[in-house]
């Protein structure tokens, strides 16, 4: 391993790698935010919805969770364009990861909500709270604490899954790295470097999650 050569090449490639990292962060953040919002509604539908709604949502969750993310990405990119929905590779990738994320978050939210004892809802009702108020002030704050660790885990999964977007040509960190490698032939060095950056990214997410967890823990 020629370390000074690697450093020189790393410096030369800094802009394309940084833009790749920027894309990775953008893709992950967008998918996690959109997927979580969608996931909360899915979790709500699963917990409180009418029977037919629960059935449809169950199908949605099972279908998405039973499909490899890779297949989901290819499907969003190739199949949707066939039916006339023309998405860029970036959009298709974010859509696929959003759907994937929403199915996981939906399941997490449902699990957290049904784990709250029925007495909590009854107590809220007994002081005259409506269902909406009960959800916002009593159930959600308790569910969020339950959700957080698993949700952080899902976020790191999404960051890792974002590498799959390189297949449909989105220049995120992995594809940017591969492009540098094809120019410099320093495959070991740059793959190690990319791995380290992914680790760092997820490490930061996990630490941030733990910090929030400590802050909001109930005495």
């Amino acid at each position: 391993m020629n370390f000074s050569l690697f450093l020189t090449e790393l410096w030369n490639a800094r802009l394309s790698l940084l833009s790749g990292l920027g894309n990775t962060i953008l893709i992950s953040a967008a998918s996690v935010v959109l997927g979580s919002v969608l996931g909360v509604f899915i979790g709500l539908a699963m917990t409180y919805g009418a029977k037919w709604l629960r059935f449809i949502v169950r199908l949605y969750i099972d279908f998405l969770r039973g499909t490899p993310v890779f297949v989901l990405i290819l499907a969003c990119f190739y199949i949707l364009s066939v039916v006339g929905l023309d998405l860029t590779a970036f959009q298709a990738g974010v859509l696929a990861l959003t759907l994937f994320c929403s199915s996981h978050v939906g399941e997490i939210v449902r699990g957290a909500l049904i784990a709250i004892p029925a007495g909590q809802t009854e107590a809220a009702k007994s002081v005259g709270l409506t269902f909406g108020q009960t959800f916002v002030y009593v159930l959600l704050p308790q569910a969020l604490r339950q959700i957080l660790p698993t949700w952080v885990n899902t976020a790191t999964e999404i960051v890792k899954a974002s590498t799959l977007l390189s297949i449909i040509g989105v220049v995120e960190l992995l594809l940017a790295t591969q492009q540098v490698i094809s120019r410099t032939y320093l495959s070991l060095e740059f793959y190690l470097f990319a791995g380290f950056v992914y680790f760092l990214l997820n490490f930061v997410i996990e630490q941030a999650g733990r910090a929030v967890e400590r802050r909001i823990s109930i005495p």
Binding site: G119, E122, A123, I218
Partner: peptide, 9 residues
């Protein structure tokens, strides 16, 4: 209630 059901948070 029998189980108090205070809001723990």
């Amino acid at each position: 209630f029998q189980q108090f059901n205070l809001f723990p948070h």
